[in-house]
């Protein structure tokens, strides 16, 4: 892919990935085929900050886990009163990392 397109992608979506993964993502995108550009551009990445807000407000019901696609963990959180509130608090610290990991998995599916 063209360098300016990849850099534009990194500029727009860099915050949605772990910072130490960004150089690797850039390398991979540069090697990727040009035909994948429109697909990669249309991917919907979850914003980690938004997920943190969701987690603080309604993480108790497992909504944060449902949003990033961890349906099983979401159900677990919902059925156990957010793990008696303990899991809810732990997830405030984990959810941003988990979101970035899910975003990376999504990108890897298409590159």
């Amino acid at each position: 892919m063209e360098e300016n397109k990849v850099d534009m992608f990194i500029m727009v979506n860099g915050k949605n990935f772990e910072s130490h993964m960004v150089p690797q993502i850039r390398e991979k995108l540069l090697k990727a085929d040009e035909s994948k550009w429109s697909l990669i551009q249309s991917l919907d990445f979850k914003n980690p900050t938004m997920l943190l807000i969701i987690s603080i407000l309604i993480g108790y019901l497992g909504v944060d886990r449902f949003v990033i696609g961890d349906v099983g963990l979401g159900i677990g959180k919902l059925l156990t009163c957010g793990g008696l509130g303990i899991w809810t608090i732990i997830d405030w610290f984990l959810i941003m990392g988990a979101t970035k990991e899910k975003n990376l998995q999504k990108l890897q599916q298409y590159t």
Partner: peptide, 18 residues
């Protein structure tokens, strides 16, 4: 029960009573 949501807000959560 020990539901923190219920103790904090006085309202039951969807799993209260489980």
């Amino acid at each position: 029960g020990a539901c923190p949501f219920r103790h904090l807000t006085g309202m039951p959560c969807p799993s209260c009573g489980s």
